[in-house]
Nucleic acid binder design. Sequence first.
DNA 1: CATGAATGAGTGTTCATTCAT
DNA 2: AATGAATGAACACTCATTCAT
Lengths: 217, 217, 217, 217
Amino acid sequence: MKAKSKKAASRRAPVQERSQLTVEAILDTVIKLLKRRGASSITTNRIAEAAGVSIGSLYQYFPNKRAIFVALHERHIAQVDRIMERRMAESAESTLEELISSLIDGMIEAHATDPELSALLQAEVPHRADGTRDFSVRLHGAFRKALAPHAREFGSRTDLDMRAFFVSNMIDALGHAIVLRRPSGSSLSRARAELLRAILAYLGQNGSSPLPGLGVS
Amino acid sequence: MKAKSKKAASRRAPVQERSQLTVEAILDTVIKLLKRRGASSITTNRIAEAAGVSIGSLYQYFPNKRAIFVALHERHIAQVDRIMERRMAESAESTLEELISSLIDGMIEAHATDPELSALLQAEVPHRADGTRDFSVRLHGAFRKALAPHAREFGSRTDLDMRAFFVSNMIDALGHAIVLRRPSGSSLSRARAELLRAILAYLGQNGSSPLPGLGVS
Amino acid sequence: MKAKSKKAASRRAPVQERSQLTVEAILDTVIKLLKRRGASSITTNRIAEAAGVSIGSLYQYFPNKRAIFVALHERHIAQVDRIMERRMAESAESTLEELISSLIDGMIEAHATDPELSALLQAEVPHRADGTRDFSVRLHGAFRKALAPHAREFGSRTDLDMRAFFVSNMIDALGHAIVLRRPSGSSLSRARAELLRAILAYLGQNGSSPLPGLGVS
Amino acid sequence: MKAKSKKAASRRAPVQERSQLTVEAILDTVIKLLKRRGASSITTNRIAEAAGVSIGSLYQYFPNKRAIFVALHERHIAQVDRIMERRMAESAESTLEELISSLIDGMIEAHATDPELSALLQAEVPHRADGTRDFSVRLHGAFRKALAPHAREFGSRTDLDMRAFFVSNMIDALGHAIVLRRPSGSSLSRARAELLRAILAYLGQNGSSPLPGLGVS
DNA sequence: CATGAATGAGTGTTCATTCAT
DNA sequence: AATGAATGAACACTCATTCAT
């Protein structure tokens, strides 16, 4: 699930650190402008000004405007990545149900933090289709591993693959949906429970047995 | 599910028709340019030229550039709408399973026709968040009606609402996903069957009994 | 010596004509700015404003800034071309001396009209080396033809070629020099006579006899 | 013929020397960039980087960008100057023919070393008209002195002046021309001989006597 | 002296939109 | 209605130059 891992050597770089701070400041500013005025009115000069950086400096950190949006998407994805990765690590010893439950919460955590931003990023900020795909793909891969121990329950290898695909997409898409569009009048926790139920039902194989001891180990 | 219902006044038809044709031609051109060069290089002048229309005429049909994109999204949604509406009408007498099966096929039909376009519209062409929401909302409403006859099986009214929300989102999001991103090596029909199974399992209530009376058999 | 010969079909083009006028106006403006402020302070917006044309229109006629300078050079060369070509045509029946005399006057006419411009074009306005070369090459070719009838006087074909090369370069470079840098205190006509003498002496073969009957015929 | 004579104060030498080396390195880099990318893409930052000097240091040696180009032209002219000056000194006892022959060789030596650079400096690198003029003027002055002993052969003082002007310009312009544009198929030495012949013929005064004993003394 | 991050005025260029024909 | 030349505000981006370290 690691996106890029540009872990800075701890003491190596006051310069690097300041760079990183500036980059973060710029991206945060873009988010602010995105919410305040919408994507179409964002200009590089406005970003620079609002971020308290000279336009020249902005171009020292980003080669062009598109790169700023790309970085914004990447940072967002990396944040989700980090959350999900942590949860997967934590659930290493848990049952499958616990794992899925945790990942749903992760998804909710990731998107409920700033639902407006999530929506804007998807609807207004152009992003080569790969960005989203990458995330899906990583989540899919993670699930393939998580479900592998139970492979014999899912007929063939293709079955496992498909199952992982569905589960990852359900968590992603439905997690997204319940945060952003859940029917008015229903609580998030209620929706969360429903999502868990949906996934478990799907994995329940013909509704037969209720996942006896599906540890992730 | 009707998007706008611009029922043409019967006698103004000839004019309206030419207008309609021009509008269609323009939107088709936008799609072509979108695929060929990407959204960021689309300009109104280029659209007009590629569509064989003068820039002046283009502005006779669209008040500004954004309106073109809006119209494109609307047309796309309307197409999906039409397909789904037809299928819902056709399945008025069918079992729930048949309805869902049909709607899944509708979703696939809608997106498999031009997956590239679907992806582009979502990733590159800006669309106020409402566009997507509108569609979801309509599908949701439709499902509320479709599931209503079985209301007593789903405890409260809130339950029904939630159930409809999940089913509509699963059809939308997972239908989308299996067309655009399904794991290589798996067939669309296989994925389609899996999606149906997932939804039915979800509606199967705890995976226990098979929806007594709901025709799911 | 023909540069491009885009002689407009006489009635074909009111549009073309206006275009041509605008282009000329722009180039004239560039010259004015060149003289007034120097090449380094010329901007496309300033050109447009000074020419009374919108910047957008300017870019309808020239794809970029460099093209403006290229066009300016080309126009200048074309003017010299035209003058020289006319003189060569007029001297078809004259002696070689008369031809050379006429071409010297042509060169002077060409550069004396606006010596400042000539100097600026050469010193400040960037021009791919070919521009100048082209002119030299055409003049060289012209002289090869002019001297051909006297080929037997100049040993081999290489000799003729070399002779034509020297004469064309003397007319070009020295004609240029006497207009722009001739020693203060000497008249142009005096310098002109000296140039003629220099060329004739050069062609006089060892300075021996005074060009016996070198008619161009 | 001395261009500037920045005779280094003997004791500041080490510093001066390093400075001088840096300046030379910068100018050499400019030439490299000039050849590689063309004048229009040269920036001070690129120069500094390619020269392995910090941009700050570059500005320690040159007050602004223009100064770099000026220095480049001056260095080039100084090189030619040096060559020509040496040759004039060496030919102090020679005949006029020998002097001229030597200066032609000097001109060839100067430009044949790096013809591409010569062309670039003239065509792409902006230079106030004075730069070229200066050189011409100095060569002109030198010739005035060289021809002075034979003043009585050239009628008036004005005559002498004019003669010196023509000879210096012929050496300059035609020397340049034979190096850079001589007709394909002719050797440089052949062209060199032709240039000498042209100048001698010009000085031959009506083609009469062949310059009896025109020492420069 | 050296450095190179930072600056920001200014540039070339685009492109949505208008409007006279 | 249709046209498309013209517009010019606005944009992304550059680059000569400075100055704190």
